[in-house]
């Protein structure tokens, strides 16, 4: 198993949650989107690929009745990659689908995000646009679904 870099957090608290959020956004980047971010990234570090990018399966689980005991619902394709930057920082990425280059770049940005001197740039240039797009989609879908909400009304009765 790959040794985690020392600055990676092992506490399960705030920094973990921040990195979890960052990695969630990277997983949901589109392949062209993340390729464009990488193309525009100045001062590219040396990148060594430690694992993958490789595609495999995860078994997705549901719950009986919605919230009961887990059961195995079916599988999904997942691609993962682990990279090491020139300065030794290690980045991981996992995402649904089979976009290998996307996931490799996501691992690079995960490694960069862990560098205090790069984090702000990653958040501004990479994560914020992904988050904006996801939020716009979410709001749009919500509004479109809300327009199909049934408004019940009582017919006026003519018996008074």
């Amino acid at each position: 198993m790959i040794k985690e870099d020392t600055q990676s957090t092992k506490t399960g608290s705030g920094p973990d949650l921040q990195r979890k959020a960052a990695m969630a956004l990277l997983a949901q980047a589109t392949a062209p989107e993340i390729a464009a971010f990488w193309a525009g990234w100045g001062d590219k570090p040396e990148v060594e690929t430690l694992r993958g990018p490789e595609t495999g399966l995860v078994m997705l689980r549901g719950r009986i009745g919605g919230a009961g005991a887990p059961f195995n619902l079916g599988e999904a394709t997942v691609t993962r990659a682990t990279v090491r930057l020139g300065n030794g920082a290690v980045g991981h990425a996992y995402a649904l689908g089979r976009h290998r280059e996307k996931v490799r770049l996501a691992a690079v940005f995960d490694a960069l995000w862990q560098q205090p001197e790069c984090r702000e740039a990653v958040e501004e240039v990479v994560l914020a646009p992904i988050a904006d797009r996801l939020e716009r989609n979410r709001t749009l879908k919500h509004a479109e679904t809300a327009a199909t909400k049934v408004d019940f009304f009582t017919m006026v009765r003519g018996d008074d």
Partner: peptide, 24 residues
């Protein structure tokens, strides 16, 4: 959302989202 626990990290990773249909 789909989340996966992986050996190399201490927190569950979000892999993305899938569409499902649920019937009660």
């Amino acid at each position: 959302e789909i989340e996966l626990d992986v050996a190399e990290l201490d927190f569950p990773l979000t892999l993305g989202t899938i569409r499902v249909t649920e019937c009660q």
